[in-house]
Design a protein around this nucleic acid. Structure first.
Lengths: 136, 136
DNA sequence: ATAAGTGCAAAGCATTTGCAACCAA
DNA sequence: TTGGTTGCAAATGCTTTGCACTTAT
């Protein structure tokens, strides 16, 4: 029951918010743009405004419910913040987003920052990849 | 003599292009936005248009003369593509950009991509950092 | 000469904001 | 009731484009 998540975040439980949360939870693709979400809701005859989608996503981000990513290509994408941290690979041929985890990279990042006298507050790591050609 | 770089890139040697290249080469900060460059040239009484700065930077990027980075905060920044690859740390308190190199992270990225059947075409790694608090 | 390059103003796109109507608490 | 929420339209901010003029070759 996702109403609890909203209440926890100090947000009133409203139709648009529930629908957007549900969309993020049930969608096949885990990474959706505001426009993606808006279009899908419209297609489902849910009467929301694009501005509301943006506002709600921003609130969700502030509440820690979703993460915002700025991959190449102009628009931001959002994903539900389920559990453990991970980074992303973006297929240059299809646009598909693949998640991965690397403790080693994580550790190295912290080591490097510390060497410079800093602490990593957050980071963004995106690999833009192409399928490995099959041996001829 | 930077005219050669321009000619090499198949670009006519024009005043705006020379000025922009020079700006990137001589500026203290190595990471400048289009607006930054535009403002500085205007202050130097160089009569360029902002649109030209954008066009030139895009051409420079295509020619491999500069790299474009999309750090958080709306606008892109550009830096001269001098030699070896490096990644970036952005200070959250001052906005300062610090460069660093990590062969290990580089290697791990490739290893991970390969494990998934991909090759890394390019990547973006940005650490958002704060000064490490001094021991009390 | 002539194709590329320029400045300006207008257009474009993703995202944000003002505001009157609306609704959860 | 009443302060948070919404949808719409208008505004924003960065970047791109159309076009007539200029310039490098």
């Amino acid at each position: 029951m996702e109403s609890a998540d909203l209440r926890n975040a100090g947000l009133k439980v409203t139709l648009p918010r529930l629908k957007i949360l549900e969309m993020l939870e049930t969608s096949q693709e885990r990474h959706l743009s505001a426009e993606d979400i808006y279009r899908r809701l419209i297609d489902l005859n849910e009467d929301v405004g694009l501005a509301t989608v943006y506002r709600v996503l921003t609130q969700f981000e502030a509440a820690g419910l979703v993460q915002r990513h700025n991959f190449e290509g102009g628009h931001a994408v959002f994903e539900l913040d389920r559990g453990p941290h991970h980074d992303h690979m973006v297929r240059l041929d299809t646009g598909e987003v693949i998640e991965f985890v690397s403790e080693e990279i994580e550790a190295l990042q912290n080591k490097i920052a510390e060497k410079h006298g800093f602490l990593v507050e957050e980071h963004s790591l995106v690999l833009y990849v192409r399928p490995k050609p099959t041996k001829a």
